[in-house]
Design a protein around this nucleic acid. Structure first.
Length: 108
DNA sequence: GTGGTGACTACTT
DNA sequence: AAAGTAGCCACCA
């Protein structure tokens, strides 16, 4: 049985992000219940490095900006997003509202 | 047990 | 409108 820490929840949500879609830290934060601590989500993504199943590259900030791409290893995040079919320009997701995926879609 | 940090968000000036 | 500050929670040393 998993401890189901808040990170596990975040990872679980991130893992359920459909291909070609992205989500924001605040959306996940709210979904897990923290709501006010979007920072934890960002931190969780840091730990996500240990979780290859967690597409942290699909998680961006509220503006659709690839804030964490620097931690991914340069343009790796942008490249991955483009590979997924997401248009990224200047570290910003194009059609962000179109590719935006809400964790509530899971059927919360 | 305490202190510092972190890939954010929202409000205020 | 833009810029700055404050708030928040959990992990690591």
């Amino acid at each position: 049985m998993a401890k189901e820490s808040i990170y596990d929840l975040i990872f679980d949500i991130a893992r359920h992000i459909p291909k070609g879609r992205v989500t924001s830290y605040g959306a996940i934060a709210k979904c897990i219940g923290t709501g006010a601590s979007a920072r934890l989500v960002g931190w969780a993504m840091h730990l996500a490095g240990n979780y290859p199943d967690v597409p942290a590259h699909r998680v961006v900030n509220s503006k659709g900006l690839l804030t964490g791409k620097h931690h991914f290893g340069g343009d790796r995040m942008e490249k991955l997003l483009k590979k997924e079919g997401i248009k990224v320009k200047n570290d910003q997701v194009q059609q962000f509202e179109t590719v935006f995926w809400d964790p509530a879609t899971l059927g919360l």
